[in-house]
C-alpha cells in the first residue's frame, strides 16, 4: 500500500507542474492557434529568477513575485516584438519563431545566470510528513496546493469575468470577437502574460525540489505539450487532467515496469489515447470548416 501511495504522491507532484505548463500551452493555443515552444523557458525563467534573486538575499515571496512579473514581461515582449509582427504568417512559421525565442531565452539565461545549477530553499522546511504510508516533503504540498488554487482561479476567470469571456470569444472566433468590440490584440497580449506567469509559478514551485538551471525548461516544456495534447488541445480541464495523468503514469511505470522506459511508457500512452480518442481525452470533435 505504501508503495502505491508513494507513487501516487510523487506522480501528482510532477503532474501538477506538467498541468501548469499544459495550461500555458492551452491559453496561447486558444488565443492564437500557435503551439508556443518557448513555454518551457517561462518555467525556467520562473525557477532561475526566483533562485537568483533569493540568492541575492531578497525574501522568498518578493523574489517569487518579481520572477513571475519578469516572466510575464518576457511573455508580453515575445508576443509584441515577435509574434505580433509576423501576423498573417503561416502558423508553422509562428511556431518556428517560438522555437527561436526558446533558444534565444536559453542563451540569454545562460549568459546572465551561468550554467551551474542553482538551489532554492524549500518554502517551508524539509521535514518530511507521513501520509497513509507515503512520505512527502512540505514542498509537495505547496506544488499541489498552489497549482490547484491557480486552476480554480483560472476556471472562475473564464466563467465569471468579462475579460475571461473576451478571451474565450477570441479563441472561438477572433473575427467575430473583433466585430463585437473586443480588442483581440490586447487579449492576445494578456494570454501571453498569463501563460508565462503560470509557467513561471510552476518553475518556482519545482525549483526547491529539482534545483534550477538554464536547461530545466526543455524537458518540462515537452511534457507540458504532451499533457496538453493528451487532455485535448485547447481544453483547460483537459490540460489539468492530462498533466496529472502523465505524471502518475510516469511514476507508476518507473515503479512497476522499467525506470529506463518510463518516458517511453508516457509516449506509448499518447498513442493509445490518440488511437481511441483522436481529439484527446476531453477534446470536442470539431467539425471542419470547408
Amino acid at each position: 500500500m505504501s508503495a502505491e501511495m508513494q507513487f501516487l504522491v510523487s506522480g501528482l507532484t510532477i503532474g501538477a507542474i506538467y498541468a501548469l505548463a499544459a495550461l500555458g500551452f492551452t491559453l496561447i493555443y486558444n488565443a492564437s492557434g500557435v503551439i508556443n515552444f518557448a513555454q518551457g523557458e517561462f518555467i525556467m525563467i520562473g525557477g532561475m529568477l526566483t533562485a537568483v534573486l533569493s540568492g541575492l538575499g531578497l525574501p522568498l515571496w518578493l523574489a517569487l513575485v518579481l520572477a513571475v512579473a519578469g516572466a510575464a514581461l518576457v511573455g508580453m515582449l515575445l508576443q509584441r516584438l515577435a509574434l505580433d509582427r509576423a501576423r498573417g504568417a503561416p502558423v508553422v512559421s509562428l511556431v518556428i519563431i517560438t522555437i527561436g525565442a526558446s533558444i534565444f531565452l536559453r542563451g540569454l539565461a545562460q549568459l546572465l545566470w551561468g550554467k551551474q545549477f542553482r538551489p532554492l530553499p524549500a518554502f517551508s522546511g524539509e521535514q518530511p510528513l507521513h501520509l497513509l504510508g507515503a512520505t512527502l516533503v512540505p514542498q509537495t504540498l505547496w506544488v499541489m496546493g498552489v497549482s490547484a488554487l491557480l486552476m480554480l482561479a483560472l476556471g472562475l476567470f473564464f466563467s465569471r469575468t468579462l475579460s475571461g469571456k473576451a478571451v474565450l470569444a477570441t479563441a472561438i472566433n477572433a473575427a467575430a470577437a473583433r466585430l463585437s468590440g473586443i480588442d483581440t490584440r490586447s487579449v492576445l497580449l494578456a494570454c501571453f502574460a498569463l501563460s508565462a506567469a503560470l509557467g513561471a509559478i510552476g518553475g518556482a514551485l519545482i525549483a526547491p525540489i529539482t534545483a534550477a538551471s538554464y536547461e530545466m525548461g526543455l524537458m518540462l516544456g515537452i511534457k507540458g505539450f504532451v499533457a496538453a495534447v493528451l487532455g485535448g488541445l485547447g481544453v483547460s480541464a483537459g490540460a489539468v487532467a492530462g498533466g496529472l495523468l502523465l505524471g502518475v503514469a510516469e511514476t507508476l511505470a518507473a515503479g512497476y515496469l522499467s525506470s529506463a522506459y518510463k518516458d517511453a511508457v508516457a509516449f506509448a500512452l499518447i498513442f493509445v489515447v490518440l488511437f481511441f480518442l483522436p481529439n484527446g481525452l476531453f477534446g470536442q470533435r470539431a467539425s471542419e470548416r470547408v
Binding site: A3, Q6, F7, T210, T251, S259
Partner: peptide
Amino acid sequence: ETYGAKDTDMSAQLTKVRG
C-alpha cells in the same frame, strides 16, 4: 534501477530499494 538525467523525482525507484 535507473533514472533519467532530467528526472525530477526518484522516489519510485527508491521505494523499490527500500523494499
